[in-house]
Nucleic acid binder design. Structure first.
Lengths: 341, 341
DNA sequence: AATCATGCTCAAAGCGCTTTGGATGGCAAC
DNA sequence: GTTGCCATCCAAAGCGCTTTGAGCATGATT
């Protein structure tokens, strides 16, 4: 069923039917009701494609997911973020189109999205330090919003980020206050902006308390379980091991716990652990009492909000860029305790 | 830059340019080269929308992701599956469009996808027992392929599945052969077809070895870490606890391990664990030596293949439906050992 | 020299929608 | 009885592409 058929069926012109359906005023209430009724009866829905051609809009938002080509790793955070964004899109009649792409092909994908007029805007995932994508999108004139920020970029752009710096500074201070003096950091890849900021917060808190910044207590890598396990294991086996570990992801934290317990130590007693927790739906940090003390911020909520910000920007192109900085909650769980003396 | 401008630029008609770009034979090699060169220079890409209108194709595949509305849980498997499917799509010039949808709205989403002519086909995720979606898509005449199968459905349809039944039967036998006689099953929601099949394999193996099927040793629920933890904890605390546990997901298995170790027991010694492992990129089961003995099958590879099957079916509508049954590998890790007598 | 393929190119229609710029008719006001 | 003004409705153009059905050289064949 298309517009033509529907309008013939009703004995009206396509114009009138289109207007009735799109809420234009120059249609009598009676006619509008009749049209709406018929549309429902025939299960008519305008073709997105044709509508887009006619209006110049795509009614779609692109998400370009970079896949680290080294480990083919898809950021586990991504599923929940997408779920949040999807809620916003479907409420606004937008489609979400996804491109999974190896790092090195990203630029081509953005250009393609633009020149094929496939989307009205894009969400940038996993911004890196000095991320080149921002300037690229700027130049292309493709509206975009960034999940995170990119240090070193001067251009204005719309973003939503967790206050990683303050979260990790607070976590470090929290451990300090419990008496810990050797606090390790198991971080994400430091080319990623969020990892950089977390490290920054961590170091800042150490320096503020006149603790040394010890490279032997810092690791960075892709945040898998195994990475957490290995990093923690190596540090615990080293001379002068840490009494507390700050970890950038709940998944790595599971590996950290494995390393701790494998050594006959108890997490929360011999070694304290604080982790960041993205509140992923399938990986809850315990229920009533959290397993891990954690800096917590829902990535799903982030998806909802950032999508809304992007749609808003598309609707009002001349509005200034928007920013949201979410503070993570510091939730105390069973994985931390006073430093043993 | 659009076709019209490009062809004017070249002093050719739109027809010729279009044909040159789409590889039709009736264009001289010289002209074709010239056209291709210009297209590259101007970074011209045909508008998907217009192309779709003209050809009647959408050049897009829909993925409808059901989100259990109870727990807002997004299946963690989904990210890797999508990544695999995305590889196939981008190789074939298809777009992937994603709809995140609460269970009860699913039917409307499929109908909408069809009537808006937004996609050429869809992938069905997470089939349930007697899944109504299959009949619906059949009736709608929308090509589709199922990741998994739906018991109780008679209609022919294209699917790709892991042989869950045989995998769990083998895992059960493996534990039996190690001397275990009380083997528990921590399974996914049994409305999900895969969970049903796994249970079937498990029970079948038990019966074959004349072991009782004990409901006290069987749990089913959404496969979170906490679910594994609680289920294992409850069973281990019960009278006559299991000596081995079969688990439906690596994430739940992490919870199982937590429950085991929290009780001062050692996994692989006091309690053996076998889990299914979807080979998720961010949750590798150890590296050289697997942490968990596992039935393993890459969900990313499944995504790649199923997408290819769907595209093939769209290209050849009259071909019979296709099926692929993947056998899981049984990989021995550190989590299993002989039953203590 | 007339005819016929062959190879290359083009104008125009059509895909399903929105939107512009009228047309039509009824009714109140003069 | 005009005029003017709403309130409704419509025909047709246009969005950017593909594709049908022809047209025009060119060189080969009779």
């Amino acid at each position: 069923m298309n517009l033509k058929e529907l309008s013939q069926n009703l004995g009206l012109s396509q114009t009138t039917v289109s207007r009735a359906l799109n809420g234009y005023p120059e249609v009598s209430p009676a006619t509008r009701a009749r049209v709406e009724e018929a549309a429902r009866a025939f299960n008519y829905r305008p073709s997105n494609r044709a509508k887009g051609l006619a209006t110049g809009q795509a009614l779609a938002i692109g998400h370009v997911i970079p896949v680290s080509n080294k480990h083919e790793m898809v950021n586990p955070v991504f599923g929940d973020f997408i779920a949040g964004a999807g809620e916003t899109y479907s409420r606004h009649g937008y489609e979400m189109i996804l491109s999974i792409v190896a790092d090195e092909d990203e630029e081509q994908v953005y250009r393609g999205l633009k020149s094929r007029r496939a989307v009205d805007g894009v969400i940038v995932h996993g911004p890196r330090m000095d991320d080149a994508r921002i300037a690229l999108l700027h130049d292309l004139g493709l509206p975009f919003a960034v999940h995170g920020r990119a240090s070193g970029i001067e251009l204005p752009y719309t973003w939503l980020d967790v206050n990683n710096r303050s979260a990790f500074a607070r976590a470090t201070s929290f451990l300090y206050d419990l008496g810990h003096r050797r606090i390790a950091l198991i971080n994400g890849l430091e080319m990623m902006d969020f990892a950089h900021r977390r490290r920054d917060g961590y170091e800042h808190a150490l320096v503020e308390r006149e603790l040394p910044v010890d490279p032997a207590l810092m690791r960075s890598g892709e945040m898998t379980e195994v990475f957490g396990y290995r990093s923690a294991g190596a540090m615990l086996d080293g001379e002068n091991p840490p009494t507390a570990i700050l970890c950038s992801s709940l998944i790595s934290a599971l590996g950290v716990r494995r390393a701790i317990e494998e050594r006959g130590l108890r997490m929360g007693r011999n070694v304290s652990v604080v982790t960041h927790d993205d509140a992923l739906s399938y990986l809850q940090n315990g229920d009533d009492v959290p397993i891990f003390t954690a800096t917590r911020s829902s990535v799903r909520e982030a998806g909802r909000r950032l999508a809304a910000m992007l749609l808003d920007q598309i609707a009002k192109p001349h509005k200034a860029t928007q920013h949201q900085l979410l503070e993570a909650e510091l939730m105390v769980g069973q994985s931390t305790g006073p430093a043993l003396s």
